[in-house]
């Protein structure tokens, strides 16, 4: 399985340095952790996103593997086509090696505009790993709300003002939606728990069918926090059960990390400018509401995992 940090550090980097992502961005950390869970020839389809646009500025590419920028909403379809061609050509003996296939997109490209093509590809059973790096808003276009944006969060399209106090709706449970496709492997992960993530990546790439990884990805300009806090915030999301780490392997739920002490969600929110207004006493109701949503989801997860 994942091995230790020293072993992982000797693996060749498939995402080279020199990309143009922001300092402190969660996305390249996530990509490196996940790619250390896969060996051999790999093809990646990348949805239009921060990650895509900053890693392929011609004449440079950060990708040391076959890589295609699909469009925004069709990443799963595109990698599905690569995988279909691989199967067709392999059947005819035109390809010998065993390949792995990965699609990666942000929450906008996955929860929202790419949901249909993701659902179609999962239902058809293409053997690929879909990774959603979820920074909870449309960050590439400058922080607009998505269906992954949590209740109460400020974005440029859920602004805070005289009347508005951030997003009015809760976030979509995409992991559950994907799991409803009854694919062999689904998991939630966080870059703060690298061993858990690499183990999940290995399982995903070795699954007999489609696999899905939903990974929380702190975003410095979108969440408005200090650059050095990325991993701490990711950990805080896990420790408050705002972003529980769990997997669904062949339908079986398993919580892969259970915090010793479940922290209040406000600890996760505090360092983030996007939640600043929730700390205002007049918005206590909103804060309580968000805590209630986190508690409800956590208890539901424990029930599903038989730990409730």
């Amino acid at each position: 399985m994942a091995g230790n940090l020293k072993q992982l550090s000797h693996k060749p980097e498939r995402l080279a340095s020199g990309h143009r992502l922001c300092a402190g961005c969660g996305a390249p950390i996530i990509v490196r952790q996940i790619l250390s869970g896969v060996d051999g020839p790999l093809v990646i389809a990348n949805a239009t996103s921060c990650l895509q646009v900053t890693t392929s500025v011609y004449p440079y590419s950060n990708w040391r593997c076959s890589w295609i920028h699909s469009a925004f909403e069709n990443t799963a379809a595109t990698i599905g086509g690569v995988e279909a061609a691989y199967r067709a050509l392999k059947k005819r003996g035109e390809i010998d090696e065993d390949y792995k296939f990965m699609a990666i997109g942000g929450d906008g490209g996955t929860f929202d505009i790419g949901l249909q093509s993701l659902s179609g590809a999962l239902e058809r059973g293409h053997k690929f790993v879909y990774v959603c790096y979820d920074n909870e808003a449309y960050m590439n276009t400058g922080v607009q709300r998505s269906s992954a944006t949590p209740f109460g969060a400020w974005t440029t399209t859920s602004p805070v003002g005289e009347i508005g106090q951030g997003k009015l709706m809760g976030r979509k449970d995409l992991t559950a939606i994907v799991a409803a496709h009854r694919i062999p492997y689904v998991a939630q992960a966080s870059p703060s728990h690298w061993k858990d993530m690499v183990t999940k990546a290995e399982k995903a790439f070795n699954a007999d069918g489609p696999a899905f990884l939903n990974v929380i990805s702190p975003c410095v300009p979108g969440w408005k926090y200090d650059t050095e806090l990325t991993i701490k915030l990711a950990k805080s999301a896990v420790d408050s059960c705002y972003w529980p780490l769990y997997e669904i392997e062949n339908g079986q739920y398993k919580v892969t990390y259970r915090p010793k002490e479940k922290k209040p969600v406000v600890e996760f929110l505090k360092p983030q400018g996007r939640f600043k207004h929730l700390l205002d006493p007049k918005n206590k109701q909103l804060l309580d509401n968000l805590q209630a949503q986190v508690d409800r989801d956590w208890e539901e997860l424990l029930r599903k995992a038989g730990e409730g």
């Binding site: 093809v43 389809a45 295609i68 699909s70 469009a71 909403e73 069709n74 379809a77 595109t78 990698i79 599905g80 086509g81 690569v82 995988e83 279909a84 061609a85 691989y86 067709a88 050509l89 035109e94 249909q116 093509s117 659902s119 179609g120 590809a121 239902e123 058809r124």
Partner: peptide, 20 residues
């Protein structure tokens, strides 16, 4: 590949054509 939309049908072919 029995796709779920025309957007995906051509997207699937992009991947397949790129794979040769």
């Amino acid at each position: 590949v029995e796709v779920e939309s025309e957007h995906s049908s051509l997207s699937v072919l992009h991947g397949a054509s790129l794979a040769g």
